[in-house]
Write a protein that binds this DNA or RNA. Structure first.
Lengths: 350, 350
DNA sequence: GTTCTTGTTGCTCATCTGTCTCCCACGTCC
DNA sequence: GGACGTGGGAGACAGATGAGCAACAAGAAC
């Protein structure tokens, strides 16, 4: 229990040595030659007094705070931010760093986001993680360049800053392959309408995977809507509205879990039971939805935890001079999106 | 853009005055007598150099960091933590403070949680917020007592630390009143099985409100299950299993939104449509669920944002000596739980 | 009209916060 | 008289703070 105001000085007095010696002992300074007895005296004095170092003074002197800044968009509105924070926090803790989190909004002005970074800089964080709540291109505050920094879940509009993003196309491939493996050949895609990387790359992955399986990817049915439950419902109604049941898709790949939730409702209304009449795969693995739908939704997980951890790991490497971030800035690092199997895929009816 | 390593000293040189004067000017020290011209010189020199204060050095000297520590349980697993963080963050920012967030686990040992607090103490935070992810009694690390602190969403096992908690009983009353107002007289309650304050208090609120409306609260049907979707489903099946339809509840109050989600499924299976055949009210307002169910779930919101903000506000007051937390520690402060109206309540069939 | 007192204005000096780190000063033993 | 073993002193980090020092003006005493 570090009682307030107990400093190295007090320990020195208690142990009957100089502050220098205390500092040497407590920090295990390699070149300091101090007898084992003195070391013991110092250590037990420190213990008894409940000494805890003043990290502020340490930081002032060493120019190292052991703190990483994390500016995160919309902490509260999406569970994704929580996963990133958790990944970053655990990676940081494991290496003796702490996180200072600044909440910002995706829609905040550049100036206000620059002020957020400034607050971190004033506190002399050793490096900065900049996390967005979904994969997109961001315009970054210029002062970010003043310390090592890594972008999480997006790429910089201007390029050349190290970044990690999810493998959208690969995730789509994984989803479609799972459907193909179950025996489906008529697969539809409920896509998003936003102009974000995920929209385009998942579509590409969808088409390419079908094509590689010898199916006509270009002709596969795709319906786009806003990426919400209602949009998923509407897109699903449209895609399942074929007169001829033999033409109807037997499986749906959904842009995200919310749209999949809409698809569940559409299926229920049409008397289609999941997964026997219709298999469904989602994207995002929002547990609150995917695990609670009935039957549980098989979906592709976004590697938020992993991105947070990866970014932190590499940021710390850079801070400690073990890595040159500039070298990695050329291309974003891509982390894969694994399939989370639950119960929404089955073989199509013969 | 605070370029690195520009200090008060550099500003002093640029302005042709002493560091003392720069400090006086930049901090608007009241007793300092400095001519307007000199003030201007200093300020413009600071601006041109892109000076930003080194908060570490400031904090070292003034014994004030302007940082609040927030130890939060399970940031990633529940959106509730996000709301608390957001409330705390905005309140803190508004008063010029920043938050240092430490993630911990509800199931972590006392020692490990004590280490988390210790990390905050080493960084000399001005105060600490300790937030749990659901309303319960916690055993607090002893070193929390070393700085002003406030508990969010729980009460201390040992008592006497200022705390804010939601008005569980009041929330239940609000829910039941909404059902009564719609004309329901046969109302069931799907309760949780955990031994937490919410379980008991919501039940009390449920019974009392019915009794006050002249109904037999003690006889109202209550089924308890684990507070998950599946539990809600099972409890709902049981409660709706009356042979005699005239006995069956026309409305269900659910312990939380997840259980309500299960109730939706049970209703669908029984051919009961919501809200015409069955009205439902949830608790928690987990947007991902409540807003996305069909029809939208009317539910009671937990004031997480408000608790975070309240706690921060009062913590800062204490830090600045405007309040004595000890006076408020006698009883936890109770914040009300408002009803969020969506579409799951209607009048019962005549 | 000159000198002395007293008061005000404008700014600086010395010192302090807690810790680290380079460099030096003692012995002692060969 | 080096080499070794042990330990201490004096800044430095960046800024805050209160006492104190010039410079000057107004008023008083001569």
């Amino acid at each position: 229990m570090s009682n307030k105001n107990i400093g190295i000085k007090d320990v020195a007095v208690a142990a009957g040595v100089s502050v220098t010696t205390v500092s040497h002992v407590l920090n295990d300074v390699s070149y300091a030659r101090i007898s084992p007895e003195t070391r013991d005296k110092v250590r037990s004095a420190a213990e008894e007094l409940g000494y805890g170092p003043n990290r502020l003074a340490q930081a002032l002197r060493t120019q190292r705070t052991g703190m990483l800044g994390l500016v995160s968009e919309d902490i509260a509105t999406t569970p994704h931010a929580g996963r990133i924070i958790l990944g970053a926090d655990e990676a940081a803790k494991a290496r003796g760093y702490n996180l200072m989190i600044i909440n910002t909004s995706g829609s905040a002005s550049l100036a206000s986001r620059q002020a957020d970074v400034e607050a971190l800089l004033e506190r002399r964080v050793d490096g900065i993680l900049y996390a967005t709540m979904y994969h997109r291109n961001v315009e970054l505050p210029a002062n970010l360049g003043n310390v090592p920094s890594v972008l999480v879940d997006s790429v910089a509009a201007g390029g050349n800053i190290t970044a990690v993003v999810p493998d959208e196309e690969g995730g789509a491939r994984t989803a479609v392959e799972a459907l193909l493996a179950a025996g489906h050949t008529r697969i539809g895609f409920l896509n998003n309408t936003d102009d974000v990387p995920a929209t385009h790359e998942r579509l590409r992955g969808f088409r390419a995977t079908l094509a590689e399986a010898g199916l006509d990817g270009a002709a596969a049915p795709v319906e786009s809507e806003v990426s919400e439950v209602q949009g998923g419902y509407e897109a699903a109604r449209r895609i399942l509205a074929r007169e001829d049941r033999a033409d109807m898709p037997t499986a749906l790949f959904c842009y995200n879990d919310r749209m999949a939730m809409g698809a569940y409702r559409a299926a229920a209304e049409l008397g289609l039971s999941i997964p026997t009449d219709l298999s469904i795969v989602g994207f995002d693995d929002q547990e609150l939805i995917a695990a609670n739908l009935h039957p549980g939704l098989t979906t592709v997980a976004l590697p938020h935890y992993e991105m947070g951890a990866w970014a932190t790991e590499h940021l710390i490497d850079a801070v400690e001079g073990k890595t040159d971030l500039a070298l990695m800035a050329l291309h974003p690092t891509i982390l894969s999106c694994p399939l989370v199997r639950r119960d929404s895929i089955a073989a199509p009816r013969p």
